[in-house]
Write a protein that binds this DNA or RNA. Sequence first.
DNA 1: GTACAAATTTGTAATGAGTACAAAATTATA
DNA 2: TATAATTTTGTACTCATTACAAATTTGTAC
Lengths: 139, 139
Amino acid sequence: MKTASQDPSAHLTLHGIKPSVQRTAILGYLMSHKTHPTADEIYRALQPNMPTLSRSTVYNTLWRMAEAGAIDALGIDRTNARFDYSSHPHAHLLCNRCGAIIDTALPQLDTAPPGPEGSIIDSVTVTYHGLCPTCASDN
Amino acid sequence: MKTASQDPSAHLTLHGIKPSVQRTAILGYLMSHKTHPTADEIYRALQPNMPTLSRSTVYNTLWRMAEAGAIDALGIDRTNARFDYSSHPHAHLLCNRCGAIIDTALPQLDTAPPGPEGSIIDSVTVTYHGLCPTCASDN
DNA sequence: GTACAAATTTGTAATGAGTACAAAATTATA
DNA sequence: TATAATTTTGTACTCATTACAAATTTGTAC
């Protein structure tokens, strides 16, 4: 993984994506919101301040950034993916009640061969399921 | 977790769901297919032999079973979830190329406190990302 | 077995995320 | 400036999923 940055424009350049107003805004939003938003949430958040922004641009940009390794795409499918800019590796806590996704510490994994013979492992995702502190407190 | 069974009807009863022709067929399909299908895939697989089966039934049934703990729902969101009947705990290998989801061994996790203070953890999901043996071999 | 109530299933219509694609706009290059 | 390449936009479309009311099936009381 390339070194992470706090500057959207520099981070895009680092991953071979030419910065533009839209791309910078989208990555900037991800950098400043730890809520793991969907593409559509990002669109709805940015659109008021960028009236001509289109959904296509948001979807295209997010997947381009994900494929370039500039951000992470969470989820099993391309549909309803959630996006995550992370400067450091971490696990996620998925709250069963409110649906929030919260960054947590990454546990230590043993080094046992994980997959079927012949597979190639790039990365590991760890997700805890349960209740976030807020939902756990009001039972 | 309650003891798993190979009999759909008994497994439903075990989890407090009254068996019916449709429910038994849906769970039976999951039990005999390790492909982690979506609700729609299950519907399309069963419909030819059950012409009156409706999508609503498949969706309703799967989520009812998931909430009862009779099966697992994979994915971050309710939309595009994939379903999994598993008699034993395991991790998943998600192939970046063909999209297949393959069961793998569950690695040992350390016992470090995983989440933010006050959270409650029910379960952990581990997903490896990479290439399945088939896709890894034809490069 | 019949009548009534409860649970389940069905089918249709509506919703809404995501995609395809061609036109418009912007940026880079000669 | 002119031209080419890239990016963005907007519309139309697809398709999984949900809502909901009608229809069917199942269970229970008589």
